[in-house]
Lab assay of single mutants.
Amino acid sequence: ASVAVIAAGTQGNIFATSALRSMRFLQILRMVRMDRRGGTWKLLGSVVYAHSKELITAWYIGFLVLIFASFLVYLAEKDANSDFSSYADSLWWGTITLTTIGYGDKTPHTWLGRVLAAGFALLGISFFALPAGILGSGFALKVQEQHRQKHFEKRRMPAANLIQAAWRLYSTDMSRAYLTATWYYYDSILPSFRELALLFEHVQRARNGGLRPLEVRRAPVPDGAPSRYPPVATCHRPGSTSFCPGESSRMGIKDRIRMGSSQRRTGPSKQHLAPPTMPTSPSSEQVGEATSPTKVQKSWSFNDRTRFRASLRLKPRTSAEDAPSEEVAEEKSYQCELTVDDIMPAVKTVIRSIRILKFLVAKRKFKETLRPYDVKDVIEQYSAGHLDMLGRIKSLQTRVDQIVGRGPGDRKAREKGDKGPSDAEVVDEISMMGRVVKVEKQVQSIEHKLDLLLGFYSRCLRSGTSASLGAVQVPLFDPDITSDYHSPVDHEDISVSAQTLSISRSVSTNMD
């Protein structure tokens, strides 16, 4: 405001104040949320940038038409019409005319000016109207692209899951042992070998009828009888010197917790746990005396209480009078009846079946994303299906024409109403129809010849004498029936064969 007042002088105070007050009108834009329509302006900018070359070309040609039209109309009207006294007036008329506004304040009066105005109007309006069409088509394409992008975003994750499931299904095939990355992934998420051994031990116990592997080994086996189970490696608790092959000598807290839970599941009659010990102070733990958990001091820290809870689970003690015997301790020893080589084939089979199920689920979810969402998608899918159906029908028609023997030239002739090819031409065609016709002709010829021969033979049998045999009239074959199959017997006289037959029969009768 200060700059405006200084620039306008003393009389500019009122002007500056009114100008600043008129800017209050811009507050109405906040009512229509114009300040939060950044996406709309961004869309407009992207459309203009995408079609910038077309817009520049249309505007450039339109500007050239405007300059030439205004100049030529000015030359034609400057002497006869006072409205075109300057080139600026003519340029104003050209702008209003070519933009199809047409105020009518300035019009050419001479015939030359009117002809020039009409010609440049028809030429220039087309170029001035091009930017509107370019922007409209650009907006339509952009909206369609955003629509497809939205659908693509919805299909991206199911497609990625389907590709991942397909690759993992491919890589978990037993015949592709060189693909090891997927197996490394499952090695990292699978439970430890100790848990798998416990699982298979329970399965084997159920197969043995509820007997433990130790009891199965204690059962008497006759001499020479084959053992029911192959000899396997035996594993004891981590306190002993022997372990399962492939295990580490260090046992983690999870393994100890699972070991304690498995020992508690063996039965309360074979294992008696004394009350857990509780320390009397955060600094020292008295293991010899058993106290109640309700006497825990409230001033303990979080670490002390955590250690106390761990001691409740991981440090059970047995009383002296209830101490288990050596046999019970041997039964409680952890027996590992299986090795990694025995378990891994079954584990890989389970993983393979899981990968198949996940692949089928991913495939079903991806197919669900291909379903249409709204009416536009339904129409688009219907149009695509219609085009596909037309293509299939056209391909089927082409194959039928190839089989029947109607080529493209014959199809055009039928469409024009011309006469089709004759039967002889159809026979000569190298097509399925021509071959079928040729075979039918040959079969008819053979059938006719057989009928003639059978009739001749029956007449010979009825006559009974050589004289009557020679008097029999043998009809000749019709050459038209034989089609294109020409037998060497067709052109010979059958009477010669009949005479030869009669001579042979007379000779045979004389010999008798």
Rank of each mutant, 00 (worst) to 15 (best):
P488S: 13
V378F: 10
E330A: 11
W183S: 08
S261C: 10
S502G: 09
S281C: 15
V436G: 13
S466A: 11
A413V: 14
G385S: 15
A413P: 05
Y229D: 10
L273P: 05
K363E: 05
A290D: 13
D173E: 13
A329E: 12
Y373C: 02
V489A: 05
E326Q: 03
G407A: 14
I503S: 04
R256C: 04
V437D: 12
Y229H: 14
I430F: 10
Q286R: 01
K449N: 03
T509I: 06
S468N: 09
M174L: 11
E285D: 03
P282R: 04
V472A: 11
P316L: 15
S269C: 14
F200C: 09
S175C: 10
G246R: 06
R258L: 03
T482N: 11
G210A: 06
I494M: 13
D341V: 05
K358T: 01
R399G: 02
K365R: 08
P222R: 09
I379M: 03
S422A: 07
S504Y: 14
R414P: 07
H386L: 14
G288R: 15
I403F: 05
E440G: 13
A310V: 14
I494N: 12
G246V: 12
G385V: 13
K254N: 04
E215V: 12
C460R: 12
S262C: 15
D480V: 05
K449M: 15
H236Y: 13
P230A: 05
V203E: 10
E331D: 14
R256S: 13
E289Q: 05
L476V: 06
A413T: 09
T306N: 09
Q263K: 07
V216E: 13
L453P: 02
M511T: 08
P222T: 05
M278K: 00
Q263R: 08
E330G: 12
I189V: 12
T180A: 07
T291S: 15
A346V: 09
P222S: 08
R218W: 09
V350L: 13
A498T: 07
W167S: 00
L338P: 10
A165D: 11
Y334S: 09
K441Q: 07
I356F: 13
S284C: 07
T509P: 08
I343M: 11
W167R: 01
A197P: 10
V472L: 06
S463C: 13
L314R: 10
W183R: 09
L199W: 14
V375A: 07
S171A: 03
T369S: 03
I356S: 08
R462G: 06
